[in-house]
Amino acid sequence: MQQFAFEMRDISIRYPHFAMENISLSLPKGQVMGLVGVNGAGKSTTIRMLMGLVKPDAGQINVLGYQLPAQQVQAKYDIGFASDDMRLYKSQTLQWHMDFIRSVYPQFDQAYAKELLKRFELIGEQKIKGLSHGQRVKACLLLVLARRPKLLVLDEPTTGLDPVARDEVISELAEILRDDERSVLFSSHNTHDIEKLSDQIAFLDRGKLLALQDKETYLDSWSRFRCQLPANANTGADAAVPANVAGVVSIKRHGQLAEVITDQNSAGFAAQLALAGFQVLEQHRMSLEEIFVANVKRSR
């Protein structure tokens, strides 16, 4: 049995103004991976390589047991792909698209498609040009989900949606992902969505993989401390990181107060801070967004 839904090993790809070096990324079957990064971090390039659309300069890509891009045709029968820059044919109806997809994929599930149609509140006979952006995204998702792909790859599916539509899409997605034992790779620069849906988090920035971890462990490992500094402490903004405290990502000072962020949170960390003279006032769990910002800032 293949253990991974996909596996990228030592991937390098170079463009004139962008490069990715030695990226290794894999997703165990049945897991949902959130791919986080700012615009231009390499999310789309990663996904395109996974779809066999772009050939890396070096490295191995294996998706559902198929070597890419050589076996992309077979692989794509089992991969469902939707992205924010994907558009359907404006002049045709959603039903036409469903018929077309069904002619391509024999496993297309008519009953499930009907159910999704109802759940997404879409009308099959409506032409695509009459749909709102949110409805179009839902239509794309319907076409992808109804074929029950083994691996679902969603590139920024919620970009450009208004908050209500985004919430609807994410809720439906969460619902669907609970129903099915699918592997999902899901990219977004919206960390809330990732936080809500993912089991795994992969952080990309400027073509580098900053982190790849189980979501809970990852969120647990980051923490923010508000500390009272000793009265005699150096008042410069760039207060030295306590040398004997490992795992400090950043320190921000406001007078005698300091905010310390760590990515190696543990019971011992607070104790170490205290030893270094930082009196911990509060400890906060960080949201993925805060972690994202802190992580990107550190790496630059």
């Binding site: 077979q74 992205s83 391509v104």
Partner: peptide, 16 residues
Amino acid sequence: DQTLTFMMSLPVTAQD
């Protein structure tokens, strides 16, 4: 019209 992305997601190669 960005329908090319939709086509690329189908089981075809660039040559097909």
